[in-house]
Design a protein around this nucleic acid. Structure first.
Length: 697
DNA sequence: TTCCCGCGGATTTTT
DNA sequence: TCCGCGGGAA
C-alpha cells in the first residue's frame, strides 16, 4: 500500500495523528488546512477503523463538503457512505428532520430564503397594523436575523430587552413572524441553527444521543462561526472531546452575520482547556512578494495578534501589477486584454484567472466587456439560481404539493396561473381560514367565478395526480410531469420572447439538477430535494471543469485559489466600502483584502478606476488606502499611481475621425480635456467625458 | 383581474 | 440607471 501519509510536512502530520482530544489548528492562508482535514478523516477511517457515520465534518460550502468527501475517497481508495459532512445549515436541517416532532415541527418543513422571509414579514406587519411605523421588511429581517444569531427568542426579547414602545412593537412583529413561519411549516436560515440549539437544550436525551453518535467532530473556517454554531459544536463534542477546529483569525470576514473570531481565539481554549494547539504558518500557495503585499495590508489592523506567513516558493514575474483605469469600462478592458495577453504569451487558459470585487454589482461591466470580446466566464453569486423567478415558481409547485400549508407557495402558483387575484384571496381568508381551505370552502359554496373556479380545479387535479404518482415515479420524472400538467412551461413558451426562452432554459436546468441529485442520492424525496435546493449556492454550482474566467466577490473567493487574481475596484468607498467606516468594520475590510490577495498563486493585479458610474452618475474616486499602503517598490516598472499624464501617448479610436494619438491632457476627472492628433482631421481638443472615443492601448 | 405607468430607492458581503 | 411596487384605469 502506498503510504499517502508521507505527503505531509511535520505540523500537518502532527495535526492528522492527533485524533483524540480537542485540537486547535491555527492555519494561515495557503498552508494546506483543507488537505489536513481530508487526511485526518481518511486516517480515522482507514487506520483507526472509525465508522464514517460517527464523523461529523462541517465545511463552509456544500461544494467544499463534496470535494472533501471525494478527496477522502481517493486517499483510501474506496467510496464512503454515511459520513455527516456539510455546512452547518445542511447538517442542522438533517438533524431537525430526524427530530422534528420534539420541537413540534413537521419533518417535511420547508426552508425559506430571504425573499420569502421578507414577504412573511410584510404579512406580519399587515396583520399587526405596523406597516408604517417599524420600517422596511429588509431591515426588519436583518434585525430578526441578528437576534436569532445571538440566540434570542421573541419572548426573551420582549421580556428583558425591549424597553421602548417601538422595540416592543418590533418584538411582537418578531413573534408574529415566527408564528407565520410555523403556520407555513417553514424555517428560515437562522432557524435551522437556532432550533438545533433549542433542541439540544430542551431535550437532554436527544443531545446525549448525538453526543454518543458523533465520535469525531471537525470544523473548518472556525474563525467565521457564530454563537449558535459554536454552541452546537460545543454541545455535540462535549462528551467525546474529539473536536478539531481549524481556522485563521486573519481571515475572519463574516462578523456582520454574527460570526465572532473569539470563538476561535478565546472560547475554544476556555471550554476545552486540555486542547492541543498546532500552528501552520508555512504557505505553499504564493511567493514571498504576494505574501509581503498581503502582510502590508493586514499588519495595520488595530486588533489581532502579530503573525507572518512564510514561503519558499519562488516569485513568478511579475508577482504584483498595478493599473489605474480611467473608469470602470477601462478597468474591465484592461483586465480582459491582460487575460488575453497572458493566455497567449504565458501559455495559460481562461480558468487560471479570477476577477474579484467587493460588491456583486461590479460584475456587470466585466460581463459586458468579456462578452463582447468572447472571453468565456462564469459569474458566482449575484442573483442566485434558486432566487430567479421561474425557478421559484417551479419550486413552489413542488413545495405546495409536498406541503399544502405553505401559503407563500400557493400564492406564487396563483400569481401565474391567473383567475384568482387579491379580491378572491381576501374573500377566502375573511373567515380566518387558511388561504387554501378558504378557497376550497368558497368553491363548495359556489362562491367562485368561472376563471377562479377553473384555476382551483387545475390545482386540485395536480394535487390528485401528485398524490397518486408520488410513490410510483422518481423525483425528476414526477417534477417534469407536474411542470407539464400545470402548464407552467407553456406559460412561458407561449410568450415567445427571448427572455421567456431563457426562463424555460432555467427551469430545464432545474430538472437537470434534480436528476443529478437523484443520481447521487437514489430514492431522493421531494422534501429532500427542496431542502438541498434552498441550501444550494452558486458556489456549489461552480463548474471547475469549464474553462472560463471566474468572476466573484472576495467573500465568495474564501477558501479558493487561482494562478492569477485581479483585485478590482480598489477605491475608497468601494473597497473599503463606505458602509464599513468604523474601526472594527475597517479591520474586517482589511482582512477581506488580505483574503483576496492570498488567493493568488502567481500574480495579483490591483486595479482601480478614477471615475465610476454610480447610480447613473459619475463620481470621482480616490485610490484605496489598501493599495496606497503597498509600497512603491513592490511594483517595479508599474506607472506611478497618481498623475494625469497616463493617457498621453495612448492611441484612441474616435467614432467619426478614426484612430488618433493623445498629445496632451488637461485637468482631471470629469473635467479632463484631451488633445488628440488625428491623421484625418488634425489636432482636436476633446472633453474626455463626452468624446465618443475608445482608448486602444 | 390585469396591465401599464410613474415613482422611489438601490449597492455591502452569504448560509 | 434599473427594478419593483403601488395605484389607477380598462
Amino acid at each position: 500500500m502506498v503510504d499517502w501519509l508521507e505527503d505531509l510536512n511535520q505540523e500537518q502530520k502532527e495535526a492528522v495523528f492527533q485524533t483524540d482530544g480537542p485540537l486547535l489548528i491555527l492555519a494561515g492562508a495557503g498552508s494546506g488546512k483543507t488537505r489536513v482535514i481530508a487526511y485526518r478523516i481518511a486516517y480515522l477511517i482507514q487506520r483507526r477503523g472509525v465508522p464514517p457515520n460517527s464523523i461529523l465534518a462541517v465545511t463552509f460550502t456544500n461544494k467544499a463538503a463534496g470535494e472533501m468527501k471525494q478527496r477522502v475517497e481517493s486517499l483510501i481508495g474506496k467510496s464512503i457512505t454515511g459520513m455527516w459532512i456539510g455546512t452547518f445549515h445542511s447538517v442542522c436541517a438533517r438533524i431537525l428532520r430526524i427530530e422534528a416532532e420534539k420541537l413540534n415541527l413537521k419533518p417535511n418543513f420547508l426552508i425559506m430564503d430571504e425573499n420569502d422571509s421578507e414577504h412573511l414579514i410584510k404579512e406580519a406587519q399587515k396583520a399587526l397594523d405596523l406597516r408604517t411605523t417599524l420600517g422596511k421588511p429588509a431591515g426588519l429581517r436583518e434585525r430578526i436575523s441578528s437576534l436569532k444569531n445571538n440566540l434570542i427568542s421573541p419572548q426573551e426579547y420582549l421580556s428583558s430587552m425591549a424597553s421602548s414602545q417601538s422595540e416592543r412593537s418590533f418584538a411582537l412583529l418578531y413573534e408574529k413572524y415566527q408564528e407565520l413561519l410555523r403556520v407555513n411549516n417553514a424555517l428560515d436560515f437562522d432557524d435551522l441553527l437556532f432550533f438545533t440549539v433549542q433542541l439540544f437544550r430542551i431535550d437532554p436525551l436527544t443531545l446525549e444521543k448525538f453526543q454518543g453518535h458523533f465520535k469525531y467532530v471537525m470544523v473548518d473556517e472556525f474563525q467565521d462561526i457564530n454563537s449558535p454554531q459554536y454552541e452546537i459544536v460545543k454541545l455535540v463534542s462535549w462528551k467525546s472531546r474529539n473536536l478539531c477546529a481549524v481556522g485563521d483569525d486573519y481571515q475572519a470576514i463574516y462578523s456582520w452575520r454574527g460570526a465572532d473570531v473569539r470563538y476561535l481565539l478565546e472560547n475554544f481554549e476556555r471550554d476545552f482547556p486540555e486542547a492541543k494547539i498546532i500552528r501552520m504558518e508555512r504557505n505553499y500557495r504564493s511567493g514571498p512578494a504576494i505574501l509581503d503585499a498581503a502582510n502590508e495590508v493586514i499588519s495595520r489592523i488595530t486588533r489581532g495578534k502579530e503573525k507572518r506567513l512564510w514561503s519558499t516558493k519562488p516569485d513568478q514575474h511579475p508577482p504584483l501589477v498595478r493599473y489605474q483605469a480611467q473608469d470602470q469600462i477601462d478597468e474591465a478592458r484592461f483586465v480582459a486584454k491582460e487575460i488575453e495577453r497572458v493566455c497567449l504569451e504565458e501559455g495559460r487558459t481562461w480558468k487560471d484567472f479570477a476577477v474579484l470585487y467587493r460588491t456583486n454589482s461590479q460584475s456587470r461591466v466585466f460581463e459586458e466587456v468579456f462578452m463582447s470580446r468572447r472571453i468565456p466566464f462564469q459569474v458566482v453569486g449575484g442573483l442566485r439560481f434558486y432566487e430567479r423567478r421561474e425557478v421559484k415558481d417551479a419550486v413552489s409547485l413542488l413545495a405546495f404539493l409536498v406541503n399544502p400549508l405553505s401559503e407563500a407557495h400557493l400564492r406564487r402558483i396563483l400569481s401565474w396561473i391567473g383567475g384568482i387575484g387579491p379580491s378572491t384571496m381576501e374573500k377566502a381568508t375573511e373567515s380566518g381560514l387558511p388561504l387554501w381551505e378558504g378557497l376550497l370552502q368558497l368553491e363548495e359554496l359556489g362562491g367562485l367565478k368561472k376563471p377562479a373556479h377553473q384555476a382551483l380545479q387545475k390545482i386540485l387535479s395536480l394535487i390528485e395526480y401528485f398524490r397518486n404518482e408520488k410513490e410510483k415515479q422518481g423525483l425528476t420524472e414526477l417534477f417534469r410531469n407536474l411542470l407539464e400538467r400545470s402548464g407552467y412551461l407553456e406559460f412561458w413558451q407561449s410568450q415567445g420572447t427571448l427572455e421567456a426562452q431563457n426562463r424555460v432554459e432555467n427551469v430545464k436546468e432545474l430538472l437537470n439538477l434534480s436528476r443529478q441529485l437523484e443520481e447521487e442520492y437514489p430514492g431522493l424525496s421531494s422534501e429532500e430535494f427542496l431542502s438541498h435546493l434552498s441550501l444550494y449556492t452558486d458556489l456549489d454550482a461552480l463548474d471547475e471543469e469549464k474553462d472560463a474566467v471566474l468572476l466573484m466577490t472576495v467573500h465568495s473567493a474564501k477558501g479558493l485559489e487561482f494562478p492569477f487574481v485581479f483585485l478590482t475596484g480598489l477605491e475608497e468607498g468601494v473597497f473599503p466600502h463606505w458602509r464599513s467606516a468604523s474601526p472594527t468594520e475597517l479591520d474586517e475590510e482589511r482582512r477581506l483584502c488580505y483574503v483576496a490577495i492570498t488567493r493568488a498563486q502567481n500574480r495579483v493585479y490591483f486595479t482601480w478606476a478614477r471615475n465610476r458610474l454610480y447610480f447613473g452618475n459619475w463620481v470621482q474616486s480616490e485610490v484605496s488606502r489598501f493599495l496606497r499602503e503597498i509600497p512603491e517598490e513592490f511594483f517595479p516598472g508599474s506607472p506611478p499611481i497618481s498623475g494625469e499624464e497616463y493617457l498621453e501617448g495612448k492611441r484612441v479610436l474616435h467614432s467619426a475621425w478614426g484612430e488618433g494619438v493623445v498629445k496632451e491632457v488637461e485637468g482631471s476627472g470629469e473635467d479632463t480635456i484631451i488633445e488628440v492628433f488625428f491623421p484625418t482631421v488634425g489636432r482636436k481638443r476633446l472633453i474626455l467625458k463626452y468624446a465618443p472615443i475608445t482608448i486602444l492601448d
